[in-house]
Amino acid sequence: MATLLEVKGLTTQFFTQDGVVHAVNGISYKLNEGETLAIVGESGCGKSVGVMSLIKLIPQPPGKIVAGEVWFDGKNLLEMSDDEIRQIRGNRIAMIFQDPMTSLNPVLTIGRQITEALQLHMGMDGEQSRARAVELLELVGISGAQSRLDNYPHQFSGGMRQRVMIAMGLSCNPQLLIADEPTTALDVTIQAQIVDLVKELKNRIGMAIIWITHDLGVVAGLAERVIVMYAGQIVEEAEVHDLYDNPHHPYTLGLLRSIPRLDLGNNEKLIPIDGLPPDLVDLPKGCPFAARCEFRIERCIAENPPAEYVTSSHRVACWRWEHVIAVQSQAGS
């Protein structure tokens, strides 16, 4: 399949009073057309900053994209002027955010907010854009779309607002939809509705999706490929089945072992990952996970391992990944 997006060595830093925050430290990955990629990690691991940097949504200053290239459709997005990138944002690359309560403008009607992008990017007039807005609201499962166009955001519930956000995201037929924790603020039954909706829309429209989340459960049912991030770096990337069956990085293994599973009994104690993530102002010289890692050797403290492919589709940044696999197969047998 054709590559839609290629990120090379993306590095974003924030220059603050306390020092330089190394939010994203040289991440590289590819995304194919029509593919669903999940980026998983805990708060502060750089997953949101990483994708915001793609379309230059980082407040500059204090933030700065220090290095890297983002190739989308033969062009480097990071070298584009503000006007050029505005033609891409919301048009070819759309984004939906975590909190639907704060990402809609409370004093404009839903209809006004959806039609704005249509008029700007698609050159539609009032009537055309309104008709398209009705279509979009119906697409995301909002009933009585015609009359709801004149409603304000406060007249919608949280799940409905996220549907409106998705409708806005899809309005210009984007090739890439970036979803930044879109279900984190929602209840589980509403989360299930939204995940189902996105899967169905993807099948129908065929856009690629980057789904950012900390929830390994949601990822399991949604993504084709998964990137695990820690302290601004990619520590592991694999096909979704491969990652869950056969995690190579101690951090991925630790995350999977520390969450309880609804389908299994509760007799076993959870195995937490001890300690805390490193301070992004003062990153260690070696592997950022070394201080919390049970597989640590001296080399881990001295040298930061690069993310290397161990099979054609599975890469990991760990000096000890073979040992991590060996320990698991022992435990399994």
Binding site: S157, G159, M160, V188, T189, I190, Q191, A192, Q193, V195, D196, D215, L216, G217, V218, V219, A220, G221, V240, H241, Y244, D245, L256, I259, R261, L262, D263
Partner: peptide, 26 residues
């Protein structure tokens, strides 16, 4: 029943096969 079926399980093999009871409305 609906609440339990909506909780995602961190195992793609199980998620592939799961049937959800998706509740309508709010």
């Amino acid at each position: 029943q609906a609440l339990l079926s909506a909780v995602p399980i961190p195992d793609p093999h199980i998620e592939d096969k799961r049937q959800r009871i998706v509740l309508e409305g709010d």
